[in-house]
Structures are given as C-alpha cells and as structure tokens.
C-alpha cells in the first residue's frame, strides 16, 4: 500500500497567545463588506506583503463568504509570479464575509483591505485593530482556562476549555462573544477542546487570547508530539564532496 506523505500540523499544539493583530494557526479574522466597490487586499507576513489581490464587491456578487488560507497564499503567489497583469481577483457580494485564517505553519500574518479609489480609506488593518462589524475567532484545543483581552479598552473574558469527551464529542461548534465598548458579553464562556470562540467586535478592538491555567488533568505534551510522523523517505541526498 502506497503511503501518502503526511505531516503533523505541529503549530496547532504549540502554546502561545492568539492575537487579532498577528493571525496564526487556529485564529480567523472575518471582514464584513458592507459597501459595494473595488478593494485591494494586502496580506503581510513579518511586515512584508506576500499577497496582493483585487476584491470586487458587487450588489449581485456570487459569494456570501470566502475563507482565505493565508498559509497557502505563498504558493499561489509563486504560481502567478510571471503573470502580474492578470493578478488575483476575488468577487463577493455586499454584506458578504471574507475570512482570513492560517491552516498551518508558524507564521503570523496581518491583513489590510483598502478602497481602490481611496487608498487612505482602509476598511481593515488587522495589525492595528479589528474594525467594528468584523469578527475574530479562535479555536482552542488545549484544555485549560484562557483569558481574552481587548487591548484597546482592557475588557477581559474567561474561556474555559473542557477536555473532550470521547463518548459524546460534537465537532464544529462555536460560541459567539460580543466585544463591546469596555466589556465582553458574556464574560465567561465554556467550550470543549477543538471548538471555537467567535468575537464580534462592536468597537475597534485588539484581541488577545492566552492560556492562563492549563487543565491539570491534561498532561504536558509528550516529546513525541513534536515528531513528524509517517513521512516517506525522500530520495537520497547527494552531497558535494
């Protein structure tokens, strides 16, 4: 039986804060397009633009939601390196959602969306803040207690992540938290490992979610989780001598 080349998504299990200003694995930023028009998208990694695209938001756009995997954009960019004229274009409808997430890797990304005609009118600059009406989601896998902070106003919330129940696990659940002026609502939420918390911003926000208390029942990650598994041996290397 031919084995596929399979890599463990190690970034999923590393412990670090999740920030709206630096999108990493398990975080998603959703931008809500409320006005029709032409936009420009800039995706940055480490300050450098790694992806640029045109977004056309029309009254009768086809898509209501488009999720863009920022970790996959470099490949796209590389493929299109020699055809700049064509560029990348996305077409959406008014009131549609464009999600930006990172499927793998350790990179931190930021997203900027601006009107083509008026570049100074930025619809979104995630490195600065999440504008009202946009959403920031974080999927939490490690059981424990997390603190969510809006660094713009200092509001805090606690998120308790329960260990999964093998007998009754339902995937794909999410809890909505409103991030208002000065406070989260609700202030305490409880989810199960692997589920998501979606923060809906009513005011400009810089959101940060960090583990403050790992669940005692959950042992620290073992050494082997950092191994790459089931990788097929590559061709022998030929070293210069």
């Amino acid at each position: 039986m031919h084995k596929k080349k399979v890599l463990l998504n190690r970034a999923m299990f590393s412990i670090r804060p999740y920030e709206s200003s630096a999108l990493t694995v398990l975080t998603t930023l959703f931008h809500h397009f409320t006005e029709a028009g032409n936009y420009e998208l800039f995706v940055r990694r480490g300050g450098a633009v790694i992806h640029r695209a045109a977004i056309q938001v029309g009254e009768k756009g086809a898509q209501q939601q488009l999720n863009l995997d920022l970790a996959a954009l470099r490949d796209t960019e590389a493929r299109e390196c020699c055809d700049k004229e064509a560029g990348t274009k996305y077409a959406l409808a008014v009131n549609s959602i464009m999600g930006f997430y990172v499927s793998q890797g350790t990179g931190a990304y930021s997203v900027e969306i601006a009107r083509t005609e008026h570049k100074e009118r930025r619809a979104l600059d995630s490195a600065a803040h999440v504008p009202p009406g946009d959403l920031f989601a974080v999927t939490l896998v490690r059981p424990g207690t997390y603190r969510a902070v809006n660094e713009e106003g200092g509001a805090e919330a606690l998120i308790r992540v329960k260990p999964p129940d093998r007998k009754d696990y339902r995937a794909g659940e999410a809890v909505l938290v409103t991030c208002g002026a000065g406070a989260f609502k609700p202030k305490r939420v409880e989810i199960t490992s692997g589920h998501s918390v979606v923060f809906r911003c009513e005011t400009p926000a810089r959101l940060r979610v960090e583990l403050v208390d790992a669940a005692e029942s959950a042992p620290r990650p073992r050494q082997e989780m950092r191994h790459t598994l089931r990788r097929s041996p590559g061709p022998p290397s030929h070293k210069a001598t």
């Binding site: 596929k4 080349k5 399979v6 890599l7 463990l8 998504n9 999923m12 694995v25 398990l26 998603t28 959703f30 809500h32 209501q64 939601q65 999720n67 995997d69 009131n95 549609s96 959602i97 999600g99 997430y101 499927s103 793998q104 009406g133 959403l135 989601a137 999927t139 896998v141 995937a171 794909g172 659940e173 999410a174 909505l176 490992s193 692997g194 589920h195 998501s196 979606v198 809906r200 089931r230």
Partner: peptide
C-alpha cells in the same frame, strides 16, 4: 478542529469557520 457555523443577525450572513486539520493529508 474548528469548523461549524454561527448564525449572525441580518444583514450579516451566517459565518462558517474554517477547519484546521491535524495532518497535512489523509493518513
């Protein structure tokens, strides 16, 4: 992990979260 959708008030459409997968392919 992740995935799933949440209902949003009109005019915002329901938002579906991306899935983040443990392995890069089906092992």
């Amino acid at each position: 992990v992740g995935g799933g959708c949440i209902n949003m008030p009109w005019p915002v459409p329901d938002i579906c979260l991306p899935k983040i997968c443990v392995f890069s392919g089906d092992p």
